[in-house]
Design a protein around this nucleic acid. Structure first.
Lengths: 151, 151
DNA sequence: CTCTATGCAAAGGTTTTGCAGAGAA
DNA sequence: TTCTCTGCAAAACCTTTGCATAGAG
């Protein structure tokens, strides 16, 4: 935890930014909720619990900054808000998501899975891939089991 | 063209909706711009050219309806607006997109490409896939060539 | 002292909603 | 009639921006 904060601090410094108390509080919230997919508002409310004086605009500006530095990835699941997802340590690619259409849960897939597909796209479409977004919409395992029980 | 309008009309009817003049005008705009990725505002302005009396709210309501019936897919490329993409005739899956980070162009990939990946996800994560969203961010062929010329 | 960063409030942009009226069955 | 649909305007959101102030080096 502390070493990850430290590493992010260095990333900010080498880009000419400071790790202010507000930014640190925001980063800590992101680290503590690594499995979640928080919206700016979510982050704001969580930061507020420990640093009540923070402003929503600061959270937005911090998230934008972290996105720019590729410390977090901004993603949109089509529900009207942007969500922010911390990049895993040393992850070359953005991970994938499984969104359950019934319970709304979002699971993550860390495995790459797209290596072959990307090779095809680069070769056939002559497109130089820099990043990707892959989301599956469907029914999660738990909701499937719920249906089984109902029968 | 006409037969596609006719087919959409039937889809609406079997779901208990009418193909009103406004809805038809909207559908025709979508058909005429099948390659584009229009925002609601874009659609509104295009519909307005031929049916000046239409309201923006009606366009939003029509697009929502068409999305619900899976006639169009709503997609978000992270630029703050939702875009609407007509499903291809008989397409089992939503197609993929190549977004150029330099010129902003959006190309489509109709090929499935994800069959293997989906089989793995369904098996390993026990997730029943209903739909997917796959977007690659990178540099399109034309922009790559532009760079070559500059050297 | 200088420059960055913050908080607040206002503004901006997109999408949704309420409502009265129009239109089809 | 009855129910759906539409246009307009207002409202609801999410996100960004302007500005005066605070804070770090």
């Amino acid at each position: 935890m502390e070493d990850r904060v430290e590493r992010i601090k260095k990333q900010l410094h080498s880009a000419g930014y400071k790790l202010t108390p507000q930014r640190e509080a925001t980063v800590r919230v992101l680290l503590e909720h690594e499995e979640d997919h928080l919206s700016a508002e979510d982050v704001y409310l969580l930061v507020k619990e420990k640093s009540p004086e923070i402003g929503l605009a600061t959270v937005y500006r911090t998230l934008e900054l972290l996105t720019e530095l590729k410390i977090v990835d901004k993603i949109n699941f089509g529900d009207g808000v942007s969500r922010y997802d911390l990049r895993k340590e040393g992850a070359a690619h953005f991970h994938h998501h499984l969104v359950c259409l019934e319970c709304g849960s979002v699971a993550e897939i860390q495995e790459d899975l797209l290596e072959d597909v990307e090779a095809i796209v680069e070769r056939e479409w002559k497109f130089k891939i820099k990043d990707h977004r892959l989301t599956f919409h469907g029914i999660c395992h738990r909701c499937q089991q719920k249906h089984e029980e109902e029968k």
